[in-house]
Amino acid sequence: MLFSIAMILIVGMLLGWICQKVKLPSLLGMLVTGMLLGPYVSNLLDKNILQISPDLRKIALIIILTRAGLGLDLSGLKKIGRPAVMMCFVPASFELIGIILLAPKIMGLTVLEAAILGAVLAAVSPAVVVPRMVKLMEEGYGVKKGIPQLILAGASVDDVYVIVLFSTFTGMMQGQGASLIRFVNIPVSIFLGIMVGLLLGTGMAFYFEKVHIRDTIKVLLLLSVSFLLVTAEDHLTTQITFSALIAIMFIGIGLKQKREVVAQRLSTKYSKLWVAAEVFLFVLVGATVNVHYLRHVGVRALLVIIGALLFRMTGVFACLLKTKLNAKERAFTMMAYTPKATVQAAIGGIPLALGFACGDTVLTVAVLAIVLTAPLGAFMIDWSYKKMLKK
């Protein structure tokens, strides 16, 4: 396993650096590293590290969500109001509807199979979007109108919404039927996640004020609490649950509201953690990609992905109607809300593992969506934000 870790870091950072030199996002090099080192090409990664790959990817996600919460300015978000709420559900719903309309005609799927494919594809990737929106906030681009805050908040809730829909559709495919409680759980889990996060964040702010400890210890405490929240969500057997990922982000928000100076210092610490976490996240996502499937992906899969993105961008446009954003700012928001990676890598293979007839198709389209949209979306954000947003 030590050899695998060394290869992930050395090759991942090297190819990431090469991509940066040729004006491509570094995550593209990391994705390629995972494909080359993974079981479908050279098979150089230890099987044990591949087995814990979902947990390592989740740790990376926890780091970027906490970092986002510590840097999120709610005052900018409050100025936007209604669109901030709409961004959490409307773009994903538009994309899901688009795939349900397109996939049966283009790929020959049933409506339910298309719904499962749509639920896999409809999530935006926090791994791509969150670090870039944090960077925009740090540099001051679009902050006055709350653009990065809007995208940050929407991307976090968007994933929870889509994952719950995916669980519902797979349950229907297995004959469990559509349960009303599953849909009721979507807003409830988000609300409970916000409340739990704010409560813990406020409590930790009070503790840090009374007990003077090093910032490194504070980071370790934050990480430990985040791991416990994720574990608690995974082991809950009740019909109504809470969203651990939302709670984790709101711990950072609650901490910033009460102890802003501490939040700024911890945000710097998390930025350093992200350097390593980013490499592991995207290399391990790349390692899940079966390059042999890519050979069988035809124009039809590409058409479905492009059509789905157009529906998604239309949904973002609808959310931004009657806002003060100008044409360039709206175009940037529509473009920045398209990258896919984390959720697709996490759930794209589940239909195949469950033995669904559409399993191969879902996995193939999910992989192609990652390969196309993650580097392209990251590149477009990095290339355009200084041109399209006001500092």
Rank of each mutant, 00 (worst) to 15 (best):
E138C: 02
L65D: 11
R295W: 13
V275K: 02
A353K: 14
I18D: 00
V225D: 04
I49M: 08
L101G: 03
M7K: 13
I194D: 13
I190V: 15
D382G: 04
K256T: 09
G201V: 03
R259E: 13
R82V: 13
S267Q: 14
L9H: 01
G348L: 11
K328T: 08
V130D: 02
E278I: 05
R82P: 06
P54M: 10
F282V: 08
S93D: 05
I49A: 04
K218M: 15
L245N: 04
L320H: 06
Q174H: 04
L15C: 03
Y337V: 03
K135D: 12
S42F: 12
Y293M: 09
A378C: 04
K322N: 15
V164R: 02
L45D: 03
G108E: 05
A60F: 12
A308Q: 09
L65F: 07
S26C: 06
R182L: 14
A277V: 02
P83T: 11
G171P: 00
S26A: 15
L372Y: 11
V362M: 04
V22E: 09
K210I: 02
V130N: 05
V297G: 05
P39Y: 13
G108Y: 04
G154R: 03
V188D: 10
S75G: 05
V283T: 09
I181S: 11
W17E: 14
V124M: 08
M173S: 14
P131C: 01
R312T: 10
I251P: 00
M35V: 15
I147F: 04
L61N: 10
K47C: 00
F94E: 04
M107S: 12
I248L: 02
Y161H: 07
S189W: 03
V367P: 00
M195F: 11
K58S: 12
L152M: 08
T323L: 05
M137K: 09
L198I: 01
D55W: 06
C88N: 00
V11N: 03
K258S: 11
G254E: 12
L9C: 08
V188N: 01
T231W: 15
T241H: 05
T33G: 08
F332E: 06
T110S: 15
F89N: 00
G197C: 03
F89Q: 00
S4N: 07
L9P: 03
V32E: 12
